[in-house]
Nucleic acid binder design. Structure first.
Lengths: 162, 162
DNA sequence: GTCCCTATACTCGGATAGCAAGTGTCCGAGTATAGGCGG
DNA sequence: CCGCCTATACTCGGACACTTGCTATCCGAGTATAGGGAC
């Protein structure tokens, strides 16, 4: 079980986009440069975020990506689903129906108890992600980030936006 | 993000082993036959369960696998960890240290807030799995399984154990 | 000086290769059993 | 008849190919901009 790197990158990108002045967009290439990741691959995930309505894209010069909604209205869960897809991590293959003790599929009305148990755990995971928003991440940044790094980041952004 | 099929198979196998009479073992080949899955591949996962101390193995004729502890003392979490490994699903690659705004690693004492958020969700997942034991699964079986299937399964087991 | 037009260059978007982890399989090492032999 | 020994066959255990999905990349479509020209 492994969560795609794209999830980590996407959340970081959304955090940066949330810090952007109103009405300004940042190209994928700049986001990639800022995080030191391959631009072409990051673009793939930003597209997924755009399809999910989390970010908006503008083409042409001075174009790029920007957050589609206030940071407080974007949960981490939405980002994860946008990048990884909404399918549950545990997939019941109904092996209870196979083998010598199996019966006709119509007799299995209730999902397998094992699947229910695994899904219950996944629901707890989803609930936790759903109640954490980008705004919470930003609050944590303000608390934990070294002021010198904040200055470096702000300077870089100034330079890029000119 | 996908949980290995081996987890599903392993939990089903543990459930069957829990229904076994005291002091009797079931070979991997029989477990595979019962669930209609490839025997050689299932064996791989049973070995992982044995290494983790969840099941015990006996060699030679009349040998096989049996549960190492009472069903109430085996949580689903243990099984998942035994099969999938204990590494977190979300792996922080510290991209905050890279790029033009990155600083020397020694300045990053606290884990990235994004990683902390993701890990918090995983903790909720783990907690849910930890409080669900094989005994709970067995209880669900008694409630939900079609009596005719129970008979088929019991008959098969009788036949195999002779 | 102002407006319009056009060419430009910059952006996103989807289609295309490469690689790692999970999936599936095999054969060798070890051991409890069962039968045969001797006492 | 009982106990011991040996050969057997059945078990687990780790080492070896294959396939799916994530990783990484490229080039084409679309568009806001900026400059130049006409009025």
């Amino acid at each position: 079980m492994k969560i795609s790197d794209g999830v980590e990158w996407s959340i970081h990108c959304c955090t940066v986009l949330a810090l952007l002045p109103e009405g300004v967009a940042l190209p994928a290439a700049r986001l990639a440069e800022f995080h030191g990741v391959p631009a072409a691959y990051l673009a793939k995930h930003l597209q997924a975020l755009a399809r999910a309505g989390i970010v908006e894209s503008t083409q042409g010069p001075k174009g790029g990506y920007r957050l589609a909604r206030p940071a407080a209205e974007v949960s981490l869960f939405e980002i994860v689903v946008a990048v990884e897809g909404g399918e549950p991590a545990f997939r019941c293959t109904e092996i209870r129906q196979r083998g010598p003790a199996g019966m006709d599929p119509k007799h299995y009305k209730i999902p397998c108890g094992i699947a229910r148990a695994m899904w219950r755990a996944e629901d707890a995971w989803r609930a936790s992600l759903q109640e954490q928003t980008l705004a919470d991440i930003l609050g944590g940044l303000a608390r934990d980030v070294d002021p010198r790094q904040a200055v470096k980041a702000a300077t870089w952004m100034q330079e890029v936006l000119t």
